[in-house]
C-alpha cells in the first residue's frame, strides 16, 4: 500500500488562496487505510475549509473505490459533475497518483479545466501493520531481493547501496542516517550468515540497472479485473480475516 500523511493545513490553504468554492475528493483505497482520504478525513478537511469561509462540496469514495482507478472513481466524480463545474478548485485526499489520475480525468474525461491540488504527502510503498508500517520497495523494475537475502538494498539501506554496509553503521547496528532504523546491510549479513550464504555476501553485486526504471513507466494488462467476481472471490478471505483468531508473532502453526 502507499502510505501517506496529510500536509500541514497552512500549505493546503496556500494552494487554495483566493479560491472560495472547493470540491474535496476522498479515496477509498490506501488513503482510507491511512486515514488521509476516508469519510472522517474528508469531513475534517471540510470543517477546516468552511471555518476559513469556503464553500465545500464533498465527494466520498466508499471503501475499495480508489481515486487512482478511473473506472471506479469516474462514476463518483460524474455524479457531482455540477459541483465540479461550479468549483474554483479541487482538493484530492489521496496519494500523488490519485491526484494526477483525478486531474487527468476531470480535464480529459469530463472536459473540465480545474486546478486540482494535493492534500497529502505520499511516503512510500509500505508493508506491515496494523499500526506500524515500513517502506520496503521502490518499485524499481529490476528486483534485487534474490541477491540480498530478501531485504531490499535500494529501499531499506538509507543510501541504497548494492554493496554495504557503509562505514557509518552506529552502535546497536543502527543506520548512519537515522538512529531509529536498523542498518539493512547488517541485517542482510546476518540473514546470509544464518542461511549459510556468506559466500554470496562476499561477491560484489553489480550496480543496479536503472535503465529498468525509465519514468514514467507505462503498463498494460490483457484483461481488466472483473469487479463483481473479485468481490465475490474476496468474501472467503474477508470472512476468515474477520472471524478467525489473529496470528501472534512467534506463534507456531
Amino acid at each position: 500500500m502507499i502510505a501517506q500523511e496529510q500536509k500541514p493545513i497552512e500549505e493546503i490553504l496556500g494552494y487554495l488562496e483566493g479560491k472560495n468554492n472547493i470540491v474535496i475528493v476522498g479515496c477509498g483505497g490506501c488513503a482510507t487505510f491511512y486515514h488521509t482520504g476516508d469519510k472522517k478525513a474528508v469531513d475534517g478537511m471540510a470543517d477546516k475549509l468552511e471555518k476559513e469561509g469556503k464553500k465545500v462540496t464533498k465527494i466520498y469514495m466508499p471503501f475499495s473505490m480508489q481515486v487512482c482507478e478511473t473506472e471506479k472513481s469516474g462514476v463518483f466524480l460524474n455524479k457531482k459533475r455540477k459541483a465540479l463545474e461550479d468549483c474554483d478548485a479541487v482538493l484530492v485526499m489521496s496519494c500523488g497518483d490519485g491526484v494526477q489520475v483525478a486531474t487527468e480525468y476531470i480535464e480529459e474525461g469530463m472536459g473540465l479545466m480545474k486546478g486540482v491540488y494535493p492534500a497529502n504527502n505520499a511516503i512510500g510503498l509500505v508493508g506491515g501493520g496494523p499500526t506500524k508500517f515500513k517502506e520496503t520497495c521502490l518499485s524499481c523494475g529490476m528486483c534485487e531481493l534474490g541477491k540480498t537475502a530478501g531485504i531490499c538494498p535500494l529501499t531499506s539501506c538509507g543510501k541504497g547501496l548494492m554493496n554495504g554496509p557503509c562505514g557509518g553503521v552506529r552502535v546497536d547496528n543502527k543506520c548512519e542516517i537515522d538512529p531509529e532504523k536498523d542498518c539493512a546491510w547488517v541485517k542482510i549479513y546476518e540473514r546470509m550468515e544464518k542461511l549459510g550464504e556468506l559466500d554470496k555476501f562476499l561477491e560484489m553485486r553489480a550496480p543496479h540497472e536503472w535503465s529498468k526504471c525509465k519514468r514514467p513507466r507505462l503498463f498494460e494488462i490483457e484483461e481488466p479485473v472483473n469487479m463483481m467476481s473479485a468481490m465475490i472471490g474476496a468474501m472467503p478471505g474477508f470472512l476468515t480475516y474477520t472471524f478467525s483468531a489473529k496470528p501472534k508473532l512467534g506463534e507456531k502453526e
Partner: peptide, 11 residues
Amino acid sequence: GAAHLKAEVAK
C-alpha cells in the same frame, strides 16, 4: 571500530 565488525570485514 565498526559496530558490526564481521559485516565490515566481509565488505
